[in-house]
């Protein structure tokens, strides 16, 4: 299976270890993984702010980079959400549609396509709080959001529970947005950071040593908030735990 590895801009710049873990994890399952070197971004920052026309060239570049793979996999829920649900600044040719439907977020890929039943190399003997980013929770439907009267399910918990030694703690408001919200984090920084303070405090109160998430952007924001208010907490991407990081 040929997989195109999509590493979003902020992971490239700030969290290379998340990209490395994603690559290694996919390689563990015997996939032929390629990282197209001309990739930049999916266009979400502009589209999210209402500037759809401004992301047309970026979207076209994305399609050029990722056309022809069996799957495109990214360790980021919000970017995949953009590609799948809002990627419409360019003409919707068959090629564009093909790339959009073949793009998956890592947890989805492992859970639904790869159908992983074990991570024998992974051990993480820590108390973790799971942060479902809003993009994965309510758009990609990683899990049942608390607002809906539907049977409970959680793909990230399914995967993480196959990791030896892991222990989960649940905050009082498990689905509350952490306040990142893409450009919201700078355009509405006061509300954004207050939400972040509350989020990390809630996890700390639940006794989490680590916050784990499928979105590094939320983690980047939460880490910045925790450091500012002095909450002792570590942040880790789900790819790192599943790839057997030794903490």
């Amino acid at each position: 299976m040929r997989i195109g590895l999509f590493i979003p801009c902020y992971i490239d710049a700030f969290f290379p270890e998340v990209g490395i873990a994603t690559l290694e994890l996919l390689e563990r399952f015997g996939h032929d993984v390629d990282y197209p070197c001309d990739q930049t971004c999916c266009g979400q920052p502009m589209a999210n702010s209402g500037f759809n026309t401004e992301c047309a060239d970026t979207e076209a570049l994305f399609v050029r980079n990722f056309s022809g793979f069996d799957y495109v996999v990214a360790p980021s829920g919000s970017c995949v959400h953009h590609v799948r649900d809002n990627f419409d600044a360019i003409e919707q040719t068959d090629e564009v549609k093909e790339v959009r439907t073949r793009t998956f977020e890592l947890v989805e890929f492992l859970h639904d396509i790869q159908k992983v039943d074990a991570f024998p190399w992974a051990r993480f003997p820590h108390r973790v709080g799971l942060h479902n980013s809003c993009g994965t929770l309510r758009r990609l439907k990683h899990a049942r959001p608390s607002e809906l009267h539907e049977p409970f399910f959680s793909k990230p918990l399914d995967l993480l529970s196959k990791v030896a030694g892991i222990e989960f703690v649940t905050p009082a408001r498990p689905d509350e947005c952490c306040g990142f919200g893409g450009t919201f984090s700078v355009f509405e920084e006061v509300v954004s950071t207050k939400m972040g303070y509350d989020k990390v405090s809630d996890h700390a109160q639940a006794g989490a040593e680590y916050i784990v998430s499928a979105d590094s952007s939320c983690l980047m924001h939460q880490q910045g908030c925790a450091e500012r208010i002095g909450v002792q907490m570590k942040f880790i991407h789900i790819a790192q735990i599943l790839n057997g990081v030794s903490a």
Binding site: I7, F14, G19, I20, C37, V190, G196, H221, C225
Partner: peptide, 21 residues
């Protein structure tokens, strides 16, 4: 706006891009 009420992320030694190469 980012750094006013929260810390900026720590810049890593290299980007994923350079690591990959």
């Amino acid at each position: 706006a980012w750094g006013k009420h929260r810390e900026v992320p720590h810049a890593p030694k290299q980007t994923f891009h350079s690591w990959y190469h």
